[in-house]
Every structure is written in C-alpha cells, then in structure tokens.
Amino acid sequence: MSAPGRRGEGHPATRVAAMKPLLLTAALLTCTALLPPTATAEAASATEGASVNMVDIAVSPAGFTAPDRLTAGVVTFRVSSTDPDGAWLGLVRPRPGVTLEQYLGDLERAMGADPVGGGQAVARDVEMLGGVAVAHVPASATLPVAPGSYYLVDFRDVGKPDLASRVRPVRVAPGRASTDVRAESTVVALDGRYLTPGVLRGPVRFVNLSPQANEAMLMPVRPGATLTDLDAFFAHRAPAPFTGGPTGVVPLSQGRSAVLAHGLPAGRYALVTWVTDVRTGKMFAAGGMRALVTVED
C-alpha cells in the first residue's frame, strides 16, 4: 500500500478530518436530547451519590450465579466465562403483568423462527437494560439501574430445555450511586448504521438511538478484511472474516446506554449487531449496519 500524499491545511480532506471531532460531539449532544424522558429520569435518579455497584459473574456450561439483590444506581457487571460458547448476559425488567414464561417464550420466537413477531412481543414484554457479551476475554458493562424487579439472562441459553431454571431473578432496592463512569470513546447506534470513531480507546460508551433494541459487538477480523468481506458474509456469499467471538454490549432498549470495558488485544475489529430489524425481518448487519474499527490498548 502506498503512503498517502501530504495535504496542506487548506485541502478539503484536511478540513473534513478536522471537523470530525466536532461532528461527533454534536451528535452526542443530540443523543442526550433525544433520550426518552423516562430513560433520562431513571438515569438521573439512579446516578446520584457515592459509588458504583460491582457485580462479578462467572459463567460456565452449567450456567451462572448472581446476587438476587442489588442496590439501585450505576451497576457494573463484570463477567468472565469458561463456556466455549462464551456468554451474552443481559439485564431485563418485565413490564407489569408479564410472566417469566411469557417473556422466555417470546424470546425464543424472536431468536428462532419468528424474529419479527417474537421481537415485537419481546419489546412489549420487557425493558432491556443491556449487559455484556464475552468470549475468551473478561469484560464488563456499566449501566444505570432503577429500583424494581429484573431478570439476568444469558442469551446463549435460549433454546436449551432448562432455560427458565438458568435465568436469575434480581430485586433492586432504592439506593444511590456515582455518575462518574469513565468512557474514552462513544459508539451510537442509529437507524441502520453506527456513528463511531475509527479508533476505540479505553472504555466505550454505547448509546442506542436506533428505533428498537440493539447491540454493539466487537469481533476480531483477519488481516486485510474489508467492509466488502463483511457484507458478503452477512449476505451468505462468503465465509466469516472473524477470528474470534464477540465482546460487547448485548441488546438494550431505545434511548439507553452502557459503558463497555474490556481487555481485548489491540487490533482490527468488526463492529456489528446480530439483531434483526423487527420491521423487515432482516438483520441490521445485512442492511449495512457494520463498521471496521481499530481497538487500541
């Protein structure tokens, strides 16, 4: 590959590059303004006070254990997994009158034969607060949690006959926690695309402003992989360009955010979602919701 030629400060490409941080800042301010009032109110009430709650969860092929009680505020779920399939651990809050059996039935439809109807039902069933996906590297997700009744679900367990027994109920009591959650990079999910810097440094804040629940997964790619390779894979025309499993933020409802911290090696990664658009039944990634980014230490 030839080195790019040098450009003077007046070159249009140079001016565009200089504007990118300003454009990203403006977009993030817009994100805050667009958050639903319930989400912003919960985030504000859940993030006043002293400290972040830390929850350590170890996942094995047999399942996972987790506290059945937490204090409201900012909660960090630190997850590691010895399961070869990794773990996709998420926190959900059932809506009034929704039973666990109803939600799990709809979740299996959404992740199986009926992604549109099942996905729409899941959106009616629960509020998705997000969580963390891990492969071979531990990671954590930090998110605001209001008082109430919740379930912790490993989405990798969907389809197993003992799914209900693997889910962990969690009661969150009123409390106070810190707003000081550091993030050095920000990724925003919009409708059908990501707004992301080309380089992700340190903890990454994921903000979901797409029209439904969505996620952000980082997957290492082989050297030289391109967006064309990603598109060919999601169109079922080419082998996977990935060299490892996903690490990232599992689906969270529109208007919510979470901060991902990880120990991923520096390198080139695909930023993807495996979520289906419940309007069309097509995966967002197959419609172009993907990016290539560099992760730095």
Rank of each mutant, 00 (worst) to 15 (best):
F64H: 02
Q212E: 09
H236C: 03
V187W: 08
V137A: 12
L34D: 13
D114V: 00
G130W: 08
T82G: 14
V204F: 12
L200G: 03
F284V: 06
R256W: 12
G63R: 01
E101Q: 15
A183C: 03
G281E: 10
M128A: 12
N53E: 12
A266Y: 09
A189R: 11
L23F: 15
W88Q: 03
G263K: 04
W274S: 01
N208C: 08
Q102L: 06
E48P: 12
T40W: 07
T40L: 13
P12F: 07
L264G: 00
G255W: 13
P4D: 12
M54S: 08
S185F: 08
R156F: 01
R166N: 01
D114T: 02
R279D: 11
D229W: 08
T71S: 11
H11T: 00
A189C: 13
R156H: 15
L24A: 14
H11I: 04
S149V: 07
H262A: 06
A164D: 09
T142Q: 11
Y151T: 02
P161I: 09
T65S: 00
P239L: 12
A39E: 03
D114G: 00
R205P: 08
P115W: 07
L91D: 01
P197G: 00
L252C: 05
A133N: 02
K282T: 05
M219D: 04
A285R: 14
A3V: 14
E101T: 14
A33T: 06
L29P: 04
K20A: 12
K282D: 15
P84C: 05
G112L: 05
P203L: 12
R256S: 14
A285F: 09
I57V: 13
S253F: 12
Y194V: 02
Y151F: 14
P251I: 02
V52T: 11
V116T: 14
G10H: 13
T247M: 01
F234L: 09
V75T: 11
L89T: 09
S140D: 09
V221P: 00
A232F: 02
T65I: 09
D83C: 05
V170T: 03
H11K: 00
W88N: 04
Y194C: 07
P223N: 05
S185G: 05
A3L: 05
V259C: 14
R279C: 06
S178D: 10
Y269R: 10
A41W: 11
A43S: 11
V207A: 10
G105T: 00
A133C: 00
A232W: 09
P169H: 04
R256A: 09
L200D: 05
L24C: 09
A240C: 13
Q212R: 00
A238C: 09
A183R: 11
A13S: 05
A72F: 01
V59R: 05
S140F: 10
G248K: 02
V116Q: 02
D125I: 04
T273A: 06
T76P: 00
E184S: 03
L195C: 06
E9V: 11
S2Y: 11
D154R: 02
L107M: 12
Y151H: 15
M1C: 07
A258H: 07
M283R: 15
V158W: 08
R171C: 01
R290M: 05
E108G: 04
L200E: 03
F64L: 00
T273S: 06
R168I: 01
V207K: 03
V75M: 07
G263L: 15
A189G: 05
